[in-house]
Nucleic acid binder design. Structure first.
Lengths: 153, 153
DNA sequence: TGTAATCGTTCAGAGTTGTAATCGTTCTGG
DNA sequence: CCAGAACGATTACAACTCTGAACGATTACA
């Protein structure tokens, strides 16, 4: 909305956040990945062996949506589905060698993205911003490393 | 993604921004409005008499999409389409009395939303956050009061 | 043993978004 | 003054994504 003078922090947050997400999406598209795929890959790397339903619960996403994301990552050999030996209903999701390499490239893209976004801030200001945002995130019940809106950057 | 320790400012921005947008959407839904409608209403109030195509250009949105938004606002009597006298191809979009009242309610909701989001920050910290975000927004070419991603909160 | 619950998957339906064609109006050039 | 191009708004259409229910396979429990 264009009515507030000056705009509240919430509007600025939403606007800059959407811009950051869009720019990040453009960067990872060069790796033939979408932000949700990146989020899922990172989550699998952080806690391997999880079932799809467990991941869907963590991400707040319907399990039917996870199928396509996992399919895309598995087709490219970035993750693999292993049947759980004691409960063959479950899949254990694990990251592969190639997935780990991809993750390194993603991390590099993320740092470049971060630098581009915050280039108008010096190191101390960036740390201040990070601290303030972290405080809000914790207060608002956002789990670290998990993007709300299921797009999970 | 859940791979960075600590997460970069960009990821935090995207996550908190998405959360802020979602919460704002929930609040305005109590007024039977969607965020895009709110953004458009505010824009019309800020610069009345604009044509639909001009607004579509400002918002970075296809004109065909604006039709539905304007229809929804016009059906509820919040805005009105007036034919331009010198060029009857154009509509002039104006806000109505009821639209102005609605805008006051929206502003109140916005302030409540802002307070809820930043409740863990004191006044000085909020101002610091606003200043840092404004700097990034200006540097990144975001026009003030206009939400990228066309959702225009 | 058999019934209910769980996991992953698939499918159909709804909702959204962008592109292209349509209609009325206005501007341009002879 | 008239014919055709240009322009704004609208509508129609197609592509895409997400949600929710249903299904087969497997397991847990009574």
């Amino acid at each position: 909305m264009a009515l507030e003078n000056p705009p509240g922090s919430a509007f600025l947050l939403a606007a800059v956040g959407a811009h950051a997400a869009a720019r990040f999406a453009a960067r990872v598209s060069a790796l033939d990945l979408t932000p949700p795929q990146v989020g899922l890959l990172g989550l699998i790397a952080a806690s391997p062996g999880q079932s799809q339903q467990a991941l869907a619960g963590v991400l707040g996403m319907p399990p039917s949506r996870l199928v396509g994301l996992v399919d895309a990552l598995a087709d490219r050999g970035l993750v693999e589905r292993r049947r759980n030996r004691t409960d063959r209903r479950l899949y254990e999701l694990h990251i592969t060698e190639e997935g780990t390499e991809m993750l390194a490239r993603i991390a590099k893209v993320g740092r470049e993205h971060d630098d581009a976004l915050c280039r108008s801030l010096d190191a101390a200001e960036r740390e201040t911003l990070r601290a303030l945002l972290s405080r809000i995130a914790a207060d608002q019940g956002l789990r670290p490393g998990i993007h709300p809106g299921y797009r999970s950057v």
